[in-house]
């Protein structure tokens, strides 16, 4: 990727809202909930996964500023494909830490005070990884098909 700061932010927001929103809708009913069988459609679960998505989005804006600074040290001013994937580690870890400390606002009762059970970790892990991986794949190829100017303008969508 060859992002500009503006392009990074636009792509981040677009991807998380569009792809993140759709994938969250589809994946939430099949995430582990600590009980036998699939949880199915449940308002509380949706609230949790969408708040997590929003958290990734808000923190992501700060992360993008940091990445932009790191990118300045690169002569090519590019953002290698690999970086786009491995930044899942730091971003995922931070979100999990905040969840486990009960610092993410708006969570439903029972999971709003931290000390989360292990099934919750796995649910978060699957949710986060699947969304991240699909967005990473999409931005590294198919995104160029509908939007022909996107790759020549630093990842800007508008």
């Amino acid at each position: 990727m060859l992002p500009t700061l503006n392009g990074r932010l636009q792509t981040r927001i677009f991807m998380l809202v569009v792809f993140g929103g759709i994938i969250t809708f589809l994946i939430t009913p099949v995430l582990p909930d600590g009980r036998p069988g699939l949880p199915g459609f449940d308002g509380d679960f949706y609230r949790i996964t969408y708040i997590i998505l929003a958290t990734v989005l808000v923190l992501g804006i700060v992360w993008e500023l940091i990445y932009h600074v790191i990118q300045q040290f690169r002569w090519e001013k590019d953002w290698p494909t690999l970086f786009g994937l491995i930044t899942a580690i730091n971003e995922g870890a931070l979100v999990w830490l905040l969840l486990d400390l009960g610092l993410v606002p708006g969570m439903v009762d029972g999971v709003n005070e931290g000390n989360l059970p292990s099934f919750f970790f796995w649910a978060f892990f699957i949710d986060f990884s699947v969304i991240w991986f699909i967005i990473w794949l999409w931005t590294n190829g198919p995104m160029r098909v509908p939007l022909i100017r996107w790759r020549f303008f630093g990842g800007r969508i508008v």
Binding site: L2, P3, T4, W75, E76, K77, D78, F152, G154
Partner: peptide
């Protein structure tokens, strides 16, 4: 040493802008 004949971002990123 440089990957291509310009720093890569001239084709779409920061340097192009």
């Amino acid at each position: 040493y440089q990957g291509f004949n310009y720093p890569k971002s001239v084709w779409g990123g920061q340097l192009k802008k």
